[in-house]
Design a protein around this nucleic acid. Structure first.
Length: 558
RNA sequence: UUCCCCGUGGUGUAAUCGGUAGCACAACAGGUUUUGGUCCUGUUAGUUCUGGUUCGAGUCCAGCCGGGGAAACCA
């Protein structure tokens, strides 16, 4: 599954290389703003940027786009670095846009001196009004004709803190009639007295994204500046600045479509809202599409990288089906997860022809995909538990699990036949009385009869109860963002996205270490929560279910 | 409404210079299997449409239709 795919950015880079651009270098960067936790969409960007660098024997930097101190925090800086490393990548250089604040300021003066920027006294509302509309040109600011000397003086005094927040901006002097609104004298600097997580109170003016991003790319020697489609309209400005500034290098911006996934939202604003409102249990809630949430859910970096390789890179907007992500982790865990048996919703089964107190130890395979994982002993006793869903009083067509008079195999043990069904006063099945055939060990039947149903089970005397959390999609619909006017997207939340329950498991699981992956046979993959587990007290989180052909068949019948 | 970008099976993504539309997931059918898991085999299904250029068009051109983006002192 993990095969690097060819995509259009390779073509672009190959063309540049063929023309001898950038001395044959390929240098990318991953430029997050530290204003939230990274999500799976960022994972795609990380894989593309670091992957390209690796493919061309180039470099990839990590750069924090920290130009807006009102939203950015150290907590996010730390989590982002941890996430990138967990994904399996190491940056060549670490930068912050704030490392370049002085240089950026000098570039601002350079633009002024060349008549390419001016200090504007218009208010936010006025700037917006003067900008015009999509189909209507803007009009020039009355401050557009200030002299170089006056602009320089004003810009220096802006830096010196002589003006109140929001009273002045530095704007590029480009074209108020441009069909691209980004070229209608965009704001380059604003006055904002906010404490910056790195530069403290050294600055009261901060560069805008457009003024910082391209110049940082240039200063870092980035050759290919990969971003998402919504920045495409910024490219003319990106290039204008590069051309009008004495930057050491000319990087090239290339846009790709951002990742969209069904059954989730991927906007930082909405994810932040889920966290702040307590809808989920923090950024690393296993239902969150954040890298930290996915990690805590029990996904592996290998699976996430395989997913990113698999989905491809293109310019067409598209939405990836959720199962693609799920298949990526199934594929990985199938090879590495140790098998065990666990019953989530038990029915007691009494095997009449096993004496009370008798224990037979049977061999069970730990991982059929990995012989080196070896075998373990499991205890068969007179009473065992099976899954409630593995018994029906009236078996539908093609149901080959247990039913009155029917025979099934207990995994790694013998075949049993259901002789009697005991119910409580409400008619709920409380116990099945069965007999086993001692001739049916080791997968054999002496007469060659076919016993198709195989059930997982645990010994009632040799099992332990452990807490289990069953996770499902956070949203009940494929496209949670698709809501009519005035309807809150949160109405699409899935009320069943978390079911807290317990399971009866093989006794050895009491010692399961935090951060280990298990397959509960016939049920799903589970991860021992690194956060809430304690020694001898593991908490099992369901990473994903196993594919369930029977459930699909049964659903189709309806 | 204006400008820009994008349209390949249900989904995602390939197709060198214009030369047999391929892969994966899903769906469906079957085989293997002490997990209705895994694995294996097969089937269904596609170039939005209309013209044009060409011996030949997914690819080039025009138009239409459809989708997305853009009007922060956010990134």
């Amino acid at each position: 599954m993990s095969v690097e795919q060819h995509h259009f950015i390779h073509d672009e880079i190959a063309r540049d290389l063929a023309h001898g651009a950038n001395e044959g270098r390929v240098h990318t960067r991953f430029p997050p703003e530290p204003n939230g936790y990274l999500h799976i969409g960022h994972a795609k960007s990380i894989c593309v940027n670091f992957g390209l660098a690796k493919h061309y024997n180039g470099k990839c930097n990590l750069r924090f786009d920290d130009t807006n101190p009102s939203k950015e925090e150290q907590e996010y800086v730390d989590s982002i670095q941890a996430d990138v490393r967990w994904l399996g990548f190491e940056w060549d250089a670490l930068y912050y846009a704030s490392d370049f604040f002085e240089q950026l300021y000098q570039y601002g003066e350079h633009l002024i001196q060349h008549g390419n920027a001016y200090v504007c006294d218009l208010s936010v509302d006025q700037i917006s009004e003067y900008r015009g509309w999509l189909d209507r040109p803007g009009k020039e600011s009355p401050y557009r004709t200030r002299s170089v000397e006056e602009n320089l003086d004003l810009f220096r005094r802006m830096r010196a803190g002589e003006f109140a927040d929001g009273t002045k901006t530095l704007r590029a002097k480009i074209d108020m009639a441009s069909p691209n609104p980004n070229l209608r004298d965009p704001v380059l600097y604003r006055i904002m007295r906010a404490h910056h997580h790195r530069t403290g109170d050294a600055w009261c003016i901060y560069p805008m994204y457009d003024f910082a991003h391209g110049q940082c790319d240039a200063l870092e020697g980035i050759t290919h500046s990969i971003c998402t489609l919504e920045f495409e309209i910024h490219k003319p400005l990106y290039n204008w600045l590069i051309q009008n500034l004495p930057v050491p290098h000319h990087p090239r911006q290339i846009e790709m479509a951002r990742l969209q996934l069904t059954y989730t939202v991927l906007s930082k604003r909405k994810l932040l809202e889920l966290v702040k409102s307590g809808t989920v249990d923090g950024w690393d809630d296993p239902r969150m599409p954040t890298i930290s949430g996915i990690r805590r859910r029990g996904y592996t970096p290998e699976a996430l990288r395989a997913f990113c390789d698999h989905i491809g890179v293109a310019r067409a907007t598209s939405t990836i089906e959720r199962v693609v992500l799920e298949n990526a982790i199934r594929d990985d865990l199938n090879k590495r997860a140790t098998r065990t048996m666990a019953v989530l919703d038990p029915i007691k089964v009494t095997i009449e022809n096993i004496a009370a107190g008798h224990v037979e130890w049977l061999d069970a395979v730990n991982n059929p995909e990995d012989p080196s994982a070896g075998t373990r002993k499991i205890a068969l006793t007179r009473t065992v538990y099976i899954e409630r869903d593995d018994f029906r009083e009236e078996a539908p067509k093609k149901y080959f699990r247990l039913a009155p008079g029917k025979e099934v195999r207990l995994r790694y043990a013998y075949c049993i036949t259901c002789k009697e069904v005991k119910k409580d006063a409400e008619g709920r099945v409380v116990e099945l009385v069965c007999t086993y055939d001692p001739q049916t060990g080791h997968g054999q039947t002496p007469d060659g009869r076919k016993v198709k149903g195989i059930l997982h089970w645990v010994s009632a005397e040799q099992c332990v109860d452990v807490p289990v959390r069953l996770y499902d999609h956070l949203f009940a619909v494929e496209h949670p963002d698709d809501v009519p006017e005035g309807v809150d997207w949160k109405t699409n939340l899935n009320p069943q996205s978390l079911v807290v329950t317990s399971a009866k498991v093989e006794a050895s699981l009491q010692a399961a270490a935090a951060g280990t992956h298990w397959q509960f046979e016939r049920v799903g993959y589970f991860y021992v929560d690194p956060k809430d587990s304690r020694p001898q007290a593991p908490v099992f989180l369901r990473t994903t279910t196993l594919k369930d052909t029977w459930a699909k068949l049964e659903k189709r019948e309806d």
